[in-house]
Design a protein around this nucleic acid. Structure first.
Lengths: 194, 194
DNA sequence: GCTTGCCTACCTAACATTTGATAGTTTAGA
DNA sequence: TCTAAACTATCAAATGTTAGGTAGGCAAGC
């Protein structure tokens, strides 16, 4: 199903849209921005997609699908312990175009229809929140410390990822991946503590 | 200085603008939104401020000033140890209208003039990044663990704060402050580790 | 071979709405 | 009367959307 993804040039449009939307958010990106990025006229986009909102929803949904797939794969490869999973998942998330959960929920979703917002919310839960919750629940079982609720930890973790992405530019000593490792290590020493 | 803050009703405008901007970001909030929130017509705003961008800059600057003041005060009251400062600072930040550093830098700043963006960037550094860096540098001195650079920790910490703000709504068992305490405790056990 | 029809992937032109901004007018209170 | 604080009316630019046209490729049918 979803045979609407046949055309090659259509995916060029989706790719450009995803890159721009994920960087600057829904309302800041105009159709003319996307068109310009593709060296074409703005109205031509309507050949490929039904409208701006539909474009955003489809692009976000596609990204979430990729996250769902990617997280599942990474997590079962790294089946060892939750510490390893945390590092692996972090690196995978950083390898992807930013899926800024906070911004999407806070800024983007209020701009689109409730139906679409609800739909994205559900996909977001299934693709990101649920899988990540598993890791932290695993952590809770192994430790004897009183830990915050898993959902809360997931939120904190995702915030950290987003924070690492735009780490202050004045530190070029380390790559993003190295920075991520260090931060996650701090998080872990806290989790297993003692 | 800045005797432009005399009028009472002018601050009503700034307050409304700050609330809306800090919630939904610069480009998503229209002058008509702000006016409607104040039960007045959009054009009337121009009696109080020069334009949208100037309004945003002034409102953000004002908020940053408040943060600078507030953080300084909280930090010297809680002069005990960095752990106490971390908790105190967290609670103070949560008591304020959200100052979403990530969104401001990523989404809002590109929409305004470079001069204004640079200005805000500097204020942001002085009001938030610098004071917080102090806390983490203090932590680095007391521990013997290899910690990430302070700037990186500040970014992570601010991300955490923003993450706590929109913690999943399905946990009403805890207040934001309680959730914050738990998260910060995780961070600390990590920092002092062992 | 050449025409016809069709499809893909763009284009130009125009439109309605939204939004920031300006100009001039009105009203209430000291 | 003078001023603070609103108002109405209008504008230009930006933006999402629609309608209709066009160039190129490809296959079928004559």
């Amino acid at each position: 199903m979803n045979d609407s993804t046949h055309s090659l040039s259509r995916e060029r449009v989706l790719d450009a849209a995803e890159r721009l939307f994920s960087q600057r958010g829904y309302s800041s990106v105009t159709l003319r921005d996307i068109a310009q990025d593709l060296d074409m006229k703005q109205a031509s986009l309507y050949y490929h997609v039904k409208g701006k909102e539909e474009l955003f929803v489809e692009v976000t949904e596609r990204s979430l699908q990729r996250h769902r797939e990617g997280l599942r794969e990474v997590m079962q490869n790294e089946a060892l312990n939750w510490q390893g999973q945390l590092h692996a998942v972090t690196h995978w998330l950083l390898s992807q175009p930013p899926m800024n959960v906070t911004r999407v929920i806070q800024s983007d979703m209020p701009e689109i229809s409730k139906v679409h917002a609800d739909q994205l919310m559900m996909s977001m839960y299934r693709a990101m929140l649920m899988p990540l919750e598993q890791i932290f629940m695993q952590a809770q079982q192994e430790t004897d410390l009183p830990l915050p609720h898993a959902g809360l930890l997931v939120g904190a973790f995702l915030s950290l990822i987003e924070g690492i992405r735009n780490a202050p530019t004045n530190e070029q000593y380390f790559s993003k991946d190295q920075a991520a490792d260090q931060i996650i290590e701090v998080l872990i020493r806290g989790l297993q503590s003692r």
